[in-house]
Design a binder for these strands. Structure first.
Lengths: 199, 199, 199, 199
DNA sequence: CATGAATGAGATTTCATTCAT
DNA sequence: CATGAATGAAATCTCATTCAT
């Protein structure tokens, strides 16, 4: 019973640390954040971090894993109810928007993150990739013949979105790239795809 | 005359350092490279770096500036003789390919580089952007009416290319992303554009 | 309560560092001492210094501030009970003697110390200056008319003492300048002053 | 003959270096000046310094020796024609004034200078010390009985002057301590001495 | 003799990690 | 479990000195 109280406390602290790390990462970047920054922001001591995480690297991996899953799940949920491809794209951007600062950090620092974080990032992409492929196949059936394989269309879309996020400092210095350009991106991307259909 | 001998030596050493830095950066990444890594790779002493560069940051900026200009110029040159948009894209990828490992690092670490390095990166993009816009306007005149503005098409293309480069570890672990996927990228991108024309 | 144990330890370490720095400074000089000298002398690791002081400069300033205040206070205390000027001078030298090696370093390196340290040095001088002026006014009232302003007498006395300290390597290679010459200095200085009175 | 030309050149360069070092030392301080500062100010290359001086330390010692001797000689010359002690003091200050910035550096950095420099500084003091003792003995014959030994009066005078020079940043931030306070110092010092005589 | 490129021994400072309390 | 003092391995940058030209 006593144990449970302790465990509860531990879980609470860990949750706090994960949430705080997420916030600090969103603001300062992941690799630029020191362990002590998170401790301070969470109002706990320096050493507490290492009670809950084996190392800084492990912490980053876990934060990315947890929030990556959150993002993936949310994206999945939003995508579920989408009939049309353009709706899906909107859902996708909507999902990103809810986590934009953090997601942008993942995009920017992607290759510099600890190895374990990569899987989480891939998982996020898979979440939308699945729905994307389905929607494309449903919608652009005819185009499959002459066609651009759907995974390439997906990469194009992802590339476009990430390009805007990664260069957000130029495109939208105030920080809300998706809010500002999301509509345009969807519209243009859809126009490109559907042009094929109209011929 | 005597002076020239001395100056020559200095220029040679600086050139050596720039080239070595370029190589090491290409391999280990830019921000992950320590000053002493470059010194060691160049076979000079630690302090020599600081004879030629005011600081590590200044060195990074200069390396990026020098090779950025090289890339921009090469791109520009290759693009000059391109009539067709697809030729231009081929020229673009060709230009990148010659510097692929380094260029990939620029893409990956973009936002984490010293301020001065950003301008160089932008300059590279401008080199291809100009030719791209012209080719699009020449080729897809009709599409301008309904159309997707050419800068958005450009961003789409850049996004696509950068997406492949940034995820090169997944797409082509051996390291030659462009060689492996370049053709496909051009083909698909062109198909998307020209579909509109065919209608 | 638990906290106190921790805080106590920290305070102890800091006190140890301050005392050690004071000792090392006294022996090697202030600006000639490296951070690691103090760490080694204190038997702590290099990095510990920076747990307790923001920077080397801050450390120097704090050591000078703490011991400067000690010196000033001690001087003040000793001076309080002095009726006669000669007693005051004796008290002054007595105060200096207790801190002679360190005080000598302050005199020697005065102008080369961090800005913040200067105030501390001035504060020490003020401690004696006040009592000095009072004693002079009390004792040499008549001389004020023809007179040498008391601040000049003070500067003369300080100059004399500092001259002996600064050239201690010549006057007293064994290191105890005041012990050896203090009496003479007071005697002579008093003789000069009182001669005026006797006329 | 050819050799002579070379030697001439060498001597000229060395003279230039000595003079330049003197100037730079006067302005920046002695121990704060880097070898390259002097080279730059002299318009010669970095390495030239080491053609003429075995090491930085040797250079400092030589500069101090040369200009120390100049100061001593000048002081001696000025002192020669002085009948009265007050004239001597005036001559002393006059001599210092001609070299004030450099002399002040000697006073401030005295104990931090290379060992060899100390002798030069002592020599300067001897130059005035000799004349001082003589004047005192001539003038204050009677006082010798009850008396303050003349070397102590000398130290008092030197202490007073050095105290003003060393604290020049407080007394005369514009830099001309002697010009501003010299008269007062002489007057007061003389008053103290002569008071004894008048009794 | 003069040059100045190259050297490399330090010195300060940061920060992830450990561990006694 | 939480704490935070202590650790020490880096990493950057400075500058006196050397030496080939």
């Amino acid at each position: 019973m006593k144990k449970t109280a302790r465990e509860l406390q531990k879980e609470q602290t860990k949750a706090l640390l994960l949430k705080t790390a997420y916030n600090v990462f969103s603001e300062k970047g992941i690799m630029n954040t020191r362990v002590s920054d998170i401790a301070q922001a969470a109002g706990v001591s320096h050493g507490t971090i290492f009670v809950h995480f084996r190392s800084q690297e492990a912490m980053i991996e876990e934060v990315v894993a947890v929030y990556g899953q959150k993002i993936a799940l949310r994206t999945h949920t939003l995508a579920q109810s989408c009939g049309h491809l353009s709706e899906l794209l909107r859902a996708h951007l909507h999902g990103i928007m809810e986590f934009e600062p953090f997601y942008t950090r993942l995009v920017i620092e992607n290759r510099l993150l600890p190895t374990g974080a990569k899987d989480s990032i891939i998982a996020i992409q898979s979440a939308i990739s699945f729905h994307f492929s389905q929607a494309v196949q449903r919608e652009l059936k005819s185009s499959q013949s002459d066609g651009i394989p759907s995974y390439l269309l997906f990469n194009m879309w992802m590339g476009l979105v990430h390009y805007y996020l990664a260069n957000g400092d130029l495109f939208a210095p105030e920080g809300h790239v998706i809010r500002r350009y999301g509509g345009t991106l969807i519209q243009s991307f859809m126009k490109l795809l559907t042009a094929k259909e109209e011929k």
